[in-house]
Design a protein around this nucleic acid. Structure first.
Lengths: 189, 189
DNA sequence: AACTTCAGTGAGTACCTACTCACTCACCAT
DNA sequence: ATGGTGAGTGAGTAGGTACTCACTGAAGTT
């Protein structure tokens, strides 16, 4: 029995730290190209202990993807509360602002891109589906916007991912300006 | 001197075959997770010879990405010719139809997704940029549509990629139908 | 003091993979 | 025949990486 702490046990604290490190590490190089040692080093522990707390590299990646979508939903929720009116489009727009801030450091954005790329692994594909389901449902019900508006919200989010991964912002060329027009972009300080 | 053939030399024929094999192999597992042996096996030659014709795995992948965007541009061009009217939106719509057919077998779609995921490699990021530039410029000038319409064309293309990688078509759930609404989808044969 | 529990690790194992190199073989010109 | 050229490969090398396991050490329990 462990009731000396009302907080998480030490192992759970570690698990948290590892997921956080996994977000950062996998965001950099993706699922296949990121060794578990990189995650362990970032978390400041041995690689062996990572495998004691997570069943496999795949399981660790799935945990990171889940955390990623949780954080997106939280962010949408908070920013929806900051909308100036109850107009569905105003709420969606506020969510867009919040999301732009969230992905400023690219971590959450790149995890999604890498997860999409690794979605041939069934467990990863399922995690992406569950995450998408959460976000789409939340955006729809919280904003009350039309299906078309929510779909467009997601579509332009994907465009934003593309622009960011290819570093098209601030490129100056005609096609680049066309793509990036009116896309919210918070530079990563 | 080699002028007994007006066609490609044998080495160039091989190069072609290898790029074709690379498209298929990399589309399956992505850049990092696809060994060059897989490409070689698919092309029916030894791995050593692949490295004689391409400088590195990275160079091979870049060649595949370039081929991918070439094929997209060709497809857009052909399908634009089939538009029923000169109305910009009709032309863009015809391009969308053509693209939906092109990505039916997922190869061209997945190469783009994997390239985006591997875009931290400078040469790959540049290939993506060049490809995007071609497509955006072509779509804009050939259709004569507004910047907004072209941007939307690309954004919904990205949404289509997401839906496809996560296998959301035919999922039946509310959020899945919302996302896939009016997205062209040609089932793979 | 003896025992249990649990966070944590060093040092493997077994396998994979990018890339190289010395070599073969078929064909052609002289 | 002889020698050159270019397609093509078998057999490496060097390094990386997912995952395992026997172990340590500290803290609590009895």
């Amino acid at each position: 029995m462990k009731q000396t702490r009302t907080n998480l046990s030490d192992a759970d604290t570690r698990r948290e730290a590892i997921v956080e490190a996994a977000l950062a590490a996998f965001a950099q190089s993706g699922f296949a190209a990121t060794p578990v040692t990189a995650v362990a080093a970032l978390a400041g522990i041995s690689q062996a202990y990572v495998f004691k707390l997570f069943p496999s590299k795949e399981g660790l990646f799935v945990a990171a993807v889940e955390r990623c979508y949780e954080r997106i939903e939280e962010t949408l929720e908070q920013s929806a509360g900051r909308a100036r009116s109850d107009d569905p489009n105003a709420i969606l727009s506020a969510m867009g602002d919040g999301y732009a801030g969230l992905i400023a450091d690219r971590t959450i954005l790149m995890i999604q891109v890498h997860a999409q790329s690794a979605a041939d692994v069934p467990a990863i594909r399922d995690a992406v589906r569950r995450g998408l389901a959460r976000i789409v449902r939340f955006a729809k019900h919280r904003s009350g916007a039309s299906d078309e508006a929510v779909q467009s919200f997601i579509a332009f989010g994907q465009l934003c991912h593309l622009i960011t991964t290819a570093d098209v912002f601030d490129l100056g060329e005609d096609w680049a300006r066309l793509l990036a027009r009116n896309i919210r972009h918070v530079p990563a300080n």
